[in-house]
Write a protein that binds this DNA or RNA. Structure first.
Lengths: 156, 156
DNA sequence: CGGGTGAGTTGGAAAAACAAACCCACTCGG
DNA sequence: CCGAGTGGGTTTGTTTTTCCAACTCACCCG
């Protein structure tokens, strides 16, 4: 709620204000997998029901999920990702790959994603202009708005 | 602390357990930009000082940041990303791009990252095997561990 | 000596998270 | 028609976190 303190205008901060709360990205993971019902989400994310209800409201309001009835009488609902929600999936894939690399022993992945090319997905973030992988040393920050002072060498 | 409820073994969940707490990724953003001193982090992320101290301890313990003195007498410290921390930068770039696309009006980006190729960075997550962009329709989930039941059509 | 800076720690109030119970509409089995 | 079960939540009361301001400590500067 009190997100007003960050003096940096920043799309990372703004994105995290929407999807950075606890469980939100896990909810998105499940919804992208097609497990979009309330009780599935409770079981698969581990979120308390009230917290989950709050997150779902927020994500729907933000246009990341939609709520649709998959049955009238009895009324039953399912949450699905919007276009915007699906566009967050690459973030999840990249995060999963990072976790697989750094948080587990070799080859102990809890889940493998297969790409349509037939191989196990290893996501690589590349530059749209030159197609080369994004490496820290190749990046230079250019603030466009006030509130930014990039002092360190990483920005040079 | 009570992260023990998620019945899904999942590298996304594990990664978020480390860097998913409030401010952690903003801290990483600043540290990657070279703004690694405590007071800079307070100012630029908006985190309360005590919370920031806790996050920094956690990130250092997790091997994502290191704390090094840039001056003895007076003792002054700076936090810097480790290799593992730098490998999270693509996640930040992808998230920033998502925020720029969905949370702002056309062309109102607070920051532009320049890639070494000379163009403004537009990160694209691609498949390492075939180099094509990762799209939701091209993905199939293959659980490797118990606890996973992927019911929906998105997994088919 | 007095003031200022960097890097935190401490203490108490306010906000979230948590767990369990409850509710409602409906369906199904007997 | 009764009782139990399911899906999708809300309510209630307790435990954790967060938040904020103030404080500390070590040091440097004039």
């Amino acid at each position: 709620m009190a997100a007003s303190k960050d003096p940096r205008p920043c799309s990372i901060a703004d994105a995290l204000a929407l999807v950075g709360e606890k469980y939100s990205l896990l909810v998105l993971r499940e919804v992208c997998l097609g497990n979009g019902r309330f009780d599935q989400l409770v079981r698969n994310t581990g979120a308390p029901r009230d917290v989950l209800a709050a997150r779902l409201r927020r994500l729907v309001d933000a246009g990341i999920l939609t709520k649709r009835a998959y049955s009238e009488r009895p009324q039953r609902f399912e949450y699905r990702p919007t276009r915007a929600g699906l566009e967050l999936e690459p973030v999840l894939m990249t995060l999963m790959a990072w976790g697989d690399r750094h948080l587990r022993r070799e080859g102990e992945r809890p889940m493998v994603i297969e790409h349509s090319c037939g191989e196990a997905l290893v996501p690589v973030v590349t530059c749209a202009a030159c197609d080369r992988p994004v490496r820290h040393e190749d990046l230079t920050a250019h603030p466009q708005a006030p509130g930014w002072t990039v002092t360190g060498p990483a920005a040079a």
